[in-house]
Nucleic acid binder design. Structure first.
Lengths: 153, 153
DNA sequence: TTTGCTGCAAATACTTTGCAGCGTT
DNA sequence: AACGCTGCAAAGTATTTGCAGCAAA
């Protein structure tokens, strides 16, 4: 049955597809593109299965990051955040605008054609120049959101 | 006297230019482009002034980040890293290649013309679309360095 | 002199780990 | 049955904070 791409990937690596791991993934899946902290994941999972422990959530997200199922982000507020990697050929790719004042995070997925062209040039250039195989990237913009700008300063 | 751009910026905000703060800045300045951890900064500062405390270093870097004198980076290993913002119209702008296996970090400053053109389009587009004033960005590439690739996957 | 800064130590916050029992394969 | 996974509690790091004394303005 349940043979989503991530389930398959887990089994392929001799990792067990437990209830807890599926629960963590389902929480992240339903919060698509919302970069949750471990605590937020834990709270939602706990609603559905009160016996689940925090440590299990930590272990699960670390495992998923290692296997390319989750992205890990650190926006500068001390807590790591996690988000599902879009499945093969799903759209879903996006980047972040972070407000330095209120820490609000906006997703955007505009300008992807421009970005793709830019990344193509830079990545292939870097791979050649530094003999470094690139398989992921992060692009963050920091600044000040509309609300915070209105509130003066 | 000592009226570097950051000194000026501190005074302008009614902040004191103390020995300790100058020491922290001089450590970062001499380690130009080396993204130091707080502990590394502390150790070097401690060599010059053994009485300095860790907490002072933490308070200093946080202050400097808030005032745009330092960049804060989190590459995913749990420790924050700091690096001087290049002074007005200095070159010095660069980005990072991070090896997921050995955590080595490479700086690069190639492809800046391509990047400038890309950022111009995206930033102005984002500012217009989301009413978000952008004043900083981070671009990281993650992958696998030459040494780690040779050691077999 | 005023007010902010420093060092110390204690307190927080986030994340990892040891271990005995349980659940997948 | 084997072995990996889980929950709990304890441990480990990184970072922040309270406070009395010190120093820049």
């Amino acid at each position: 049955m349940s043979d989503s791409w991530y389930t398959v990937r887990l089994r392929k690596n001799n990792l067990r597809v437990t209830n807890e791991r599926q629960l963590v993934l389902s929480v992240l899946d339903r919060n698509h593109q919302r970069h949750l902290t471990v605590e937020e994941i834990y709270l939602q999972a706990h609603d559905e299965k009160p016996s689940i422990g925090m440590a299990t959530v930590y272990r699960a997200v670390n495992l998923f990051v290692q296997h390319g199922i989750l992205h890990k982000f650190e926006f500068g507020d001390g807590k790591a955040r996690y988000e599902m990697v879009p499945g093969p050929e799903e759209p879903g790719h996006h980047h972040h605008l972070i407000c330095k004042k209120c820490q609000k995070i906006l997703n955007y997925d505009d300008f992807m054609e421009v970005e793709r062209k830019f990344l193509e040039i830079v990545e292939s250039g870097l791979e050649r120049r530094y003999h470094f195989r690139i398989d992921d990237h992060i692009i963050h913009f920091y600044g000040c959101c509309e609300t915070c700008a209105d509130e003066g300063s």
